[in-house]
Design a protein around this nucleic acid. Sequence first.
DNA 1: GATTGGCAGTCAGCGGCAGAGAGTGCCAGG
DNA 2: CCTGGCACTCTCTGCCGCTGACTGCCAATC
Lengths: 337, 337
Amino acid sequence: MVSDRGLEVLRAIVQDYVALREPVGSKSIVERHAFGVSAATIRNDMALLEEEELIAAPHTSSGRVPTDKGYRVFVDRLQRMQPLTHSQRIAITRFLDEAVDRADVLDRTARLLSQLTNQVALVQVPIRRHALVRRVELVAVVEHRLLAVLILDSGRVEQRVIDAQQRIEPDEASALGRAFTETIAELSPTEAVQRLTAAAASAPGSLRAATAAVAHALTEMLQVGGGDRIVMAGASHLVREERDFHGTITPVLDAIEEQVTLLRLFDEMGVEGEVATRIGRELTGPLGEASVIASTYSTDGIEGHVGVLGPTRMDYAGNMAAVRAVARYLTRLLSED
Amino acid sequence: MVSDRGLEVLRAIVQDYVALREPVGSKSIVERHAFGVSAATIRNDMALLEEEELIAAPHTSSGRVPTDKGYRVFVDRLQRMQPLTHSQRIAITRFLDEAVDRADVLDRTARLLSQLTNQVALVQVPIRRHALVRRVELVAVVEHRLLAVLILDSGRVEQRVIDAQQRIEPDEASALGRAFTETIAELSPTEAVQRLTAAAASAPGSLRAATAAVAHALTEMLQVGGGDRIVMAGASHLVREERDFHGTITPVLDAIEEQVTLLRLFDEMGVEGEVATRIGRELTGPLGEASVIASTYSTDGIEGHVGVLGPTRMDYAGNMAAVRAVARYLTRLLSED
DNA sequence: GATTGGCAGTCAGCGGCAGAGAGTGCCAGG
DNA sequence: CCTGGCACTCTCTGCCGCTGACTGCCAATC
């Protein structure tokens, strides 16, 4: 069984390895930490830690490195999440308060978080799933073209230019828009789609083609539009830490370019407390050599994720604090705005 | 003066160096290309090429590598732009035809181009500069909140949630929207901004606060919204070719994360013919070790750029053809759609 | 005059080797 | 339970010399 001091040794190993990126040996531990025992004693503790698979030796005879399991114990039981420094807090408020709209806020959040942690930052741009239709606007653009704008009561706005198949006057366009609004306002997307198919069939003669085209477009906008996006920043940090990955980092880079992968990742993490971590192999697939720290923020009752991704060898205490602080501030900013 | 054969030697050096990523020597040239002369002759030609600074030797005695200037001569005078293969053309149409809307088209374009060229692909999402205001819509969301939607006749739609400072009924909101529409419809952004400041001052008593808030928001939306975006794909290719960069690629990665940098880059390139190239030091700043190939596409009279970025050691013939083909197809797709 | 073969010189890359340094495991004694 | 000591292992570094791949130059040749 691993003793209390054994755990302290584990903490020392994690801290030193993260700081120095070199396997850490018993001698360097007694030098850098005040354990009050000799190197030989530390060695015994390390032997136990190795038995428990909390640390491992890259080569038969060199210092030890934390395993994924070791990091996990460190995160769960050994670290104190360090509050941010004053200047960091100021940086957060300064930087985010300058944003002009919601998209800009999330963009800035990503860049800020990546600067704060020196990792890749990920911010999910969420969309309320079950919003109701509020209004449809149709604007004649040129000739046969209509701009359709679909406004949901969540504040989400979908827009698309569609081919009306026939010439349409500006007045006709807005009238048609009002008609559609009456048909599907206050309905859920699913209900709205049903009404639309009916409406398309029973359209008045003169605008029959245009009505059908609009109904078709609105149907698509209601169905497709559900996709969340991910804003990313600081990919270069990953390259800077390339050495921390066993082979190449290209699979990791490929993975984080696929928005779907990241959305699934956030989804599966299921943040329970304030921050959640996934370390190394706890993540299946190409991210098996990486770690992710995530938290949630909310805006108008919609939840979104925010987090960072980096090598398993990262400053968990600092990064978790940064992610938590940013998520908190983001929630506050978005709800007061 | 460099002879005709000398230029052929340069072509051989560029081709072999791009293919094999190793400095190429006189002997390997006579082996891989049918010059019908001996290695010594090639050496003489190479000495001349070196005098002209078209090639250089990394070490006193190893093969030669093209300089930026050498690549430039190759691109301008020695290469035949290879038409794409049949399967590549099919890939383009297949992949782009599946897109559902304009944003999706540009997203897919980036990914496609990056696959086709094995480089980082960049697609500019352009915005018509001098569009006229078409309409303002205001929707009451909750309590004091208004959703403002600004529609321009270019089809561009800006949206923002604003704090109206006072309670507003749905009917009041749409009436206010109509009022604003009447005030600034058919105006250019600059004119509209002027009217807005006037309107805010002379607002009717009961909705004074809300009117001012909306005018303020609209002003910002008209002014700020002008920013184009860049869609990027395939950043991992850059890492894969890391060896081609002298030191680290992190400055390059940092640069391409800054949308502003890329927009300026596209701007300064001023594509005249169908495709433009900038090679190595022809690009100032952190991209001095990279090359960019760009072309333009157009949609509704607005021009946007599309291109790839990679190390100077790249397949110019193939990549230029790919960029050109994609730009052409994009123009066709966006104008018929 | 262009081309060629030959020859000497240069330099990167590689394998082998020895020594230094760091770290471990184990053991006997406090 | 802790400690100092010892033998052992393994990496890393620098060194050496060799090999191979070039170039540059020159005299001979077409």
